[in-house]
Design a protein around this nucleic acid. Structure first.
Length: 170
DNA sequence: GCCAACGTTGGC
DNA sequence: GCCAACGTTGGC
Protein backbone atom coordinates (compact mmCIF):
# COMPACT_ATOMS: atom_id res chain seq x y z
CA UNK A 1 0.00 0.00 0.00
CA UNK A 2 2.64 2.42 -1.08
CA UNK A 3 -0.08 4.76 -2.29
CA UNK A 4 -3.04 4.61 0.05
CA UNK A 5 -4.81 7.35 -1.87
CA UNK A 6 -6.22 7.23 -5.35
CA UNK A 7 -6.97 10.13 -7.69
CA UNK A 8 -10.63 10.11 -8.76
CA UNK A 9 -11.25 12.90 -11.20
CA UNK A 10 -9.84 15.99 -9.59
CA UNK A 11 -10.28 14.58 -6.11
CA UNK A 12 -8.11 12.23 -4.15
CA UNK A 13 -9.94 9.72 -2.01
CA UNK A 14 -8.76 7.02 0.34
CA UNK A 15 -8.43 3.66 -1.31
CA UNK A 16 -11.06 1.19 -0.15
CA UNK A 17 -10.78 -2.57 0.24
CA UNK A 18 -13.29 -5.24 -0.69
CA UNK A 19 -13.77 -8.96 -0.93
CA UNK A 20 -15.15 -10.66 -4.02
CA UNK A 21 -16.41 -14.23 -3.94
CA UNK A 22 -16.21 -16.54 -6.89
CA UNK A 23 -16.56 -20.26 -7.33
CA UNK A 24 -13.26 -21.50 -8.77
CA UNK A 25 -15.06 -24.26 -10.68
CA UNK A 26 -16.79 -21.45 -12.58
CA UNK A 27 -14.23 -18.65 -12.50
CA UNK A 28 -11.16 -18.83 -10.29
CA UNK A 29 -8.21 -16.55 -9.69
CA UNK A 30 -6.17 -18.22 -12.43
CA UNK A 31 -9.00 -17.36 -14.84
CA UNK A 32 -8.83 -13.75 -13.75
CA UNK A 33 -5.07 -13.74 -14.35
CA UNK A 34 -5.71 -14.51 -17.99
CA UNK A 35 -7.94 -11.47 -18.54
CA UNK A 36 -6.91 -7.91 -19.08
CA UNK A 37 -10.21 -6.78 -17.62
CA UNK A 38 -13.11 -8.80 -16.31
CA UNK A 39 -16.67 -7.52 -15.87
CA UNK A 40 -17.86 -8.36 -12.36
CA UNK A 41 -21.44 -8.88 -13.43
CA UNK A 42 -24.27 -11.11 -12.32
CA UNK A 43 -24.48 -9.76 -8.77
CA UNK A 44 -28.17 -9.86 -7.85
CA UNK A 45 -28.29 -8.85 -4.24
CA UNK A 46 -29.01 -5.26 -3.29
CA UNK A 47 -26.48 -5.03 -0.50
CA UNK A 48 -23.75 -6.42 -2.71
CA UNK A 49 -24.84 -4.12 -5.52
CA UNK A 50 -24.57 -1.11 -3.27
CA UNK A 51 -21.01 -2.09 -2.41
CA UNK A 52 -20.21 -2.37 -6.13
CA UNK A 53 -21.58 1.13 -6.58
CA UNK A 54 -19.32 2.40 -3.82
CA UNK A 55 -16.19 1.08 -5.51
CA UNK A 56 -13.68 3.38 -7.14
CA UNK A 57 -10.89 2.66 -9.59
CA UNK A 58 -7.78 1.74 -7.65
CA UNK A 59 -9.62 -0.01 -4.84
CA UNK A 60 -8.19 -3.43 -4.04
CA UNK A 61 -10.13 -6.66 -3.59
CA UNK A 62 -9.40 -9.95 -1.93
CA UNK A 63 -10.37 -12.66 -4.40
CA UNK A 64 -12.13 -15.38 -2.41
CA UNK A 65 -12.84 -18.88 -3.65
CA UNK A 66 -16.19 -20.13 -2.35
CA UNK A 67 -17.68 -23.61 -2.75
CA UNK A 68 -14.12 -24.83 -3.01
CA UNK A 69 -11.93 -27.49 -1.39
CA UNK A 70 -10.84 -25.62 0.50
CA UNK A 71 -12.48 -22.23 0.32
CA UNK A 72 -10.26 -19.24 0.96
CA UNK A 73 -8.45 -16.19 -0.36
CA UNK A 74 -6.52 -16.87 -3.56
CA UNK A 75 -5.29 -13.47 -4.64
CA UNK A 76 -5.67 -9.73 -4.97
CA UNK A 77 -7.64 -7.91 -7.66
CA UNK A 78 -7.93 -4.25 -8.57
CA UNK A 79 -11.04 -2.25 -9.44
CA UNK A 80 -10.56 -0.65 -12.86
CA UNK A 81 -13.78 1.28 -13.40
CA UNK A 82 -16.57 2.92 -11.48
CA UNK A 83 -19.85 1.01 -11.43
CA UNK A 84 -21.77 0.89 -14.70
CA UNK A 85 -25.04 -0.89 -15.54
CA UNK A 86 -24.61 -4.67 -15.61
CA UNK A 87 -25.08 -5.67 -19.25
CA UNK A 88 -26.58 -9.06 -18.39
CA UNK A 89 -29.73 -7.60 -16.84
CA UNK A 90 -31.01 -6.68 -20.33
CA UNK A 91 -30.01 -9.94 -21.99
CA UNK A 92 -33.06 -12.19 -22.21
CA UNK A 93 -30.90 -15.21 -22.87
CA UNK A 94 -28.87 -14.68 -19.70
CA UNK A 95 -29.56 -16.35 -16.39
CA UNK A 96 -29.04 -12.87 -14.95
CA UNK A 97 -31.76 -11.26 -17.08
CA UNK A 98 -34.06 -9.06 -15.02
CA UNK A 99 -37.35 -8.20 -16.74
CA UNK A 100 -37.93 -5.41 -14.23
CA UNK A 101 -34.78 -3.65 -15.31
CA UNK A 102 -34.86 -1.01 -18.04
CA UNK A 103 -32.00 0.92 -19.66
CA UNK A 104 -33.57 4.09 -18.23
CA UNK A 105 -33.64 2.63 -14.77
CA UNK A 106 -31.12 -0.19 -14.44
CA UNK A 107 -31.26 -2.13 -11.21
CA UNK A 108 -27.94 -3.90 -11.30
CA UNK A 109 -24.39 -2.67 -11.53
CA UNK A 110 -20.96 -4.06 -12.23
CA UNK A 111 -17.33 -2.91 -12.21
CA UNK A 112 -14.38 -4.08 -14.25
CA UNK A 113 -11.63 -5.80 -12.27
CA UNK A 114 -8.17 -7.18 -13.00
CA UNK A 115 -5.73 -9.50 -11.28
CA UNK A 116 -2.92 -7.90 -9.25
CA UNK A 117 -1.12 -10.78 -7.55
CA UNK A 118 -1.87 -14.32 -6.47
CA UNK A 119 -1.19 -15.09 -2.81
CA UNK A 120 2.00 -17.17 -2.68
CA UNK A 121 0.27 -19.00 0.17
CA UNK A 122 -3.44 -19.66 -0.40
CA UNK A 123 -5.27 -18.71 2.80
CA UNK A 124 -7.99 -21.21 3.56
CA UNK A 125 -10.95 -20.35 5.76
CA UNK A 126 -9.59 -22.28 8.74
CA UNK A 127 -6.31 -20.38 8.43
CA UNK A 128 -8.18 -17.08 8.36
CA UNK A 129 -10.01 -18.09 11.52
CA UNK A 130 -6.73 -18.57 13.36
CA UNK A 131 -5.69 -14.94 12.84
CA UNK A 132 -6.75 -12.98 15.92
CA UNK A 133 -6.80 -9.70 13.96
CA UNK A 134 -9.63 -11.08 11.84
CA UNK A 135 -11.97 -11.99 14.66
CA UNK A 136 -14.45 -9.30 13.73
CA UNK A 137 -14.16 -9.74 9.99
CA UNK A 138 -17.47 -9.77 8.18
CA UNK A 139 -16.55 -12.77 6.06
CA UNK A 140 -16.06 -14.87 9.17
CA UNK A 141 -19.34 -14.01 10.85
CA UNK A 142 -22.07 -16.61 10.91
CA UNK A 143 -24.48 -16.54 8.03
CA UNK A 144 -22.56 -14.10 5.86
CA UNK A 145 -23.45 -14.91 2.27
CA UNK A 146 -22.67 -11.63 0.56
CA UNK A 147 -20.61 -12.07 -2.58
CA UNK A 148 -19.27 -8.52 -2.38
CA UNK A 149 -18.37 -7.01 0.97
CA UNK A 150 -16.10 -4.36 2.42
CA UNK A 151 -12.83 -5.24 4.15
CA UNK A 152 -10.96 -2.90 6.48
CA UNK A 153 -7.46 -1.73 5.58
CA UNK A 154 -6.15 -3.68 8.57
CA UNK A 155 -7.92 -6.88 7.56
CA UNK A 156 -6.60 -6.51 4.04
CA UNK A 157 -3.05 -5.96 5.21
CA UNK A 158 -3.15 -8.87 7.64
CA UNK A 159 -4.47 -11.25 4.99
CA UNK A 160 -2.13 -10.35 2.15
CA UNK A 161 0.83 -10.41 4.55
CA UNK A 162 -0.16 -13.84 5.89
CA UNK A 163 -0.55 -14.92 2.28
CA UNK A 164 3.04 -14.02 1.55
CA UNK A 165 2.71 -10.68 -0.23
CA UNK A 166 4.35 -7.41 0.69
CA UNK A 167 1.35 -5.25 1.52
CA UNK A 168 3.34 -2.06 1.00
CA UNK A 169 4.04 -2.94 -2.62
CA UNK A 170 0.38 -3.27 -3.61
C1' DG B 1 -46.83 -3.98 6.94
C1' DC B 2 -46.89 -8.80 8.47
C1' DC B 3 -45.39 -13.26 7.75
C1' DA B 4 -45.30 -17.84 5.65
C1' DA B 5 -43.37 -20.06 1.84
C1' DC B 6 -39.89 -20.51 -1.07
C1' DG B 7 -35.23 -19.80 -3.14
C1' DT B 8 -30.25 -19.14 -2.67
C1' DT B 9 -25.76 -19.31 -0.59
C1' DG B 10 -22.05 -21.69 1.13
C1' DG B 11 -19.64 -24.46 4.76
C1' DC B 12 -19.26 -28.95 5.87
C1' DG C 1 -26.46 -33.90 0.06
C1' DC C 2 -27.58 -31.60 4.45
C1' DC C 3 -28.74 -27.70 6.77
C1' DA C 4 -28.40 -23.01 8.80
C1' DA C 5 -28.95 -18.43 7.59
C1' DC C 6 -30.61 -14.97 5.01
C1' DG C 7 -33.21 -12.68 1.04
C1' DT C 8 -37.31 -12.28 -1.78
C1' DT C 9 -42.01 -12.85 -2.97
C1' DG C 10 -46.74 -12.41 -2.57
C1' DG C 11 -51.23 -13.11 -0.16
C1' DC C 12 -53.77 -10.85 3.08
Amino acid sequence: MSDPSVPVGSLTVARAYWLLKSEPDVFGYTDLEQRVSEPWNGVRNYQARNFLRAMQPGDLCLFYHSQAQPSGVAGVACVLTPAVPDNLQFDESSAYYDPKSTPDNPRWSMVEVAAVAALPRFLALDALRTLPELEGMRLLQKGTRLSVMPVTADEFRVIVTAGGLDAASL
